[in-house]
Simulated assay, not measured.
Amino acid sequence: MDTKQMYSNSTEILQAIRERKPIVHQITNYVTVKDCANVVLAMGGSPIMADAEQELEDIVRLSNALVINIGTLNDRTRSSMFLAISIAQDRGIPIILDPVGAGASSYRTNTVQSMISHVVPTVIRGNLSEIRSVAQLSSHTFGVDSAGCDGTEQIEQTKGIAWNLSRKLGCVVAVTGKFDIVTDGTFMAIIENGHPALTQITGTGCMSTAMVGTCCAVTDDYFSAAVTALLGMGIAGELASVHAGLGSFHTALFDHLSRLDGALLMQKGAFHVS
């Protein structure tokens, strides 16, 4: 796959979201739940935020993708997550996992490992420390907003970690940071779009995962879906950065996310695929 093909795939994915309005079911955290719902709406999808076990059978079966985010993990939502991924697997819809804070506590780390052994997700998106934890490598997570990959040497190390984990599990792995790295074990994308302000408001990582879920809901090319979502977040962050304050930046971010299309990605995208 080359850059031209990637732009074509992204254009089709974004158009399909507007046309089909896919239902994206999210069991996510209460810190960022509103933003995660709104970003799906901004892209043209339809979010459902349901975590009661009593309705999961019905909700998952009418959904086009399932997003699992462990940001505010507890025993009740943990049980719902395991049930939901089993139903999603049976239903044949993509499962996107955001292992928020994996490596910060044994509870989070063990939950993620149990999930992956139970059902392998379609896409795993996290920062470098979280992905290292998923890969069962030593991790230095001190909070849920730990830094991503930065610098040439670390980028090369991150590429190796992501590649090996993707090949081991048979899923797409996306590592976000100053540079975003996405691989399906065959192709590797390095995305340079983004802005430091994205790290200064809470929820942009969770929103990125929700965007990945929305893109995955309309295609079976999950590599292109993940690249499209992260390109979109990076570009929207750059465009929103002209606003002086973080509150204005937050609002402008949604404005630009709502205007994402293939032409904008082609105009502003900074990435390469190998």
Rank of each mutant, 00 (worst) to 15 (best):
E238S: 04
G148T: 06
F82P: 03
M207W: 04
K34V: 14
E192P: 07
L66W: 05
T176I: 11
K21Y: 13
T77L: 11
Q154G: 04
H195I: 08
T77C: 14
S258K: 00
Q54I: 15
T202R: 01
T141L: 11
G44N: 02
G232L: 00
H25K: 01
Y107I: 05
R61D: 13
G262H: 02
I93W: 05
F223M: 14
M1R: 09
A104F: 11
L14A: 00
S8Q: 04
A162R: 02
A104T: 14
Q136I: 01
M233A: 07
A135C: 03
F82W: 06
E156K: 15
G71K: 07
L137V: 04
N164S: 11
H140Y: 11
T28Y: 03
C216I: 04
T202Q: 00
D51H: 15
K4H: 08
R259F: 00
R78D: 11
R78T: 13
L73H: 04
R18N: 00
P196Y: 03
A236R: 00
V172H: 07
A240D: 03
T11L: 01
S8P: 01
T32A: 08
T72G: 13
A147R: 13
S258F: 00
T204E: 02
T183G: 03
R78M: 15
V67S: 06
H250R: 15
G45F: 00
V123E: 08
N69H: 15
T186C: 05
D221H: 01
L97C: 02
H243S: 14
I85A: 01
G143W: 07
S86Y: 02
V242I: 13
N74T: 06
S146N: 10
N127F: 08
I13G: 00
V120F: 03
E53L: 10
L231C: 05
V60G: 10
S105K: 08
D184G: 05
Q54E: 15
A225G: 07
V100F: 05
E238V: 02
D184E: 06
A263C: 00
S106I: 15
T219V: 03
P121K: 04
S117H: 10
C36V: 12
T111F: 10
G237V: 05
L56E: 06
T32H: 05
D220F: 03
T228F: 07
T183R: 01
M266Q: 04
A197L: 12
H140E: 13
G160H: 03
K178Q: 05
S10C: 14
I95S: 14
S241Y: 05
N64W: 09
R91A: 14
G213H: 06
N38K: 07
L83F: 11
G45W: 01
K4C: 07
G262I: 01
R108H: 11
I116A: 10
A104P: 09
I68D: 07
V175T: 13
S63H: 09
V60F: 08
V212G: 09
G44V: 01
A174D: 10
S248N: 11
G71E: 07
Q136S: 08
A174E: 11
A162W: 01
M81P: 04
D150T: 12
A88H: 09
L260P: 00
I27E: 03
G247L: 11
S117E: 13
A240Q: 03
A244W: 08
M81W: 02
Y222H: 12
Q200G: 07
T158S: 15
S224H: 06
C206P: 09
L257K: 00
S241E: 07
Y30H: 02
L137D: 06
I181D: 00
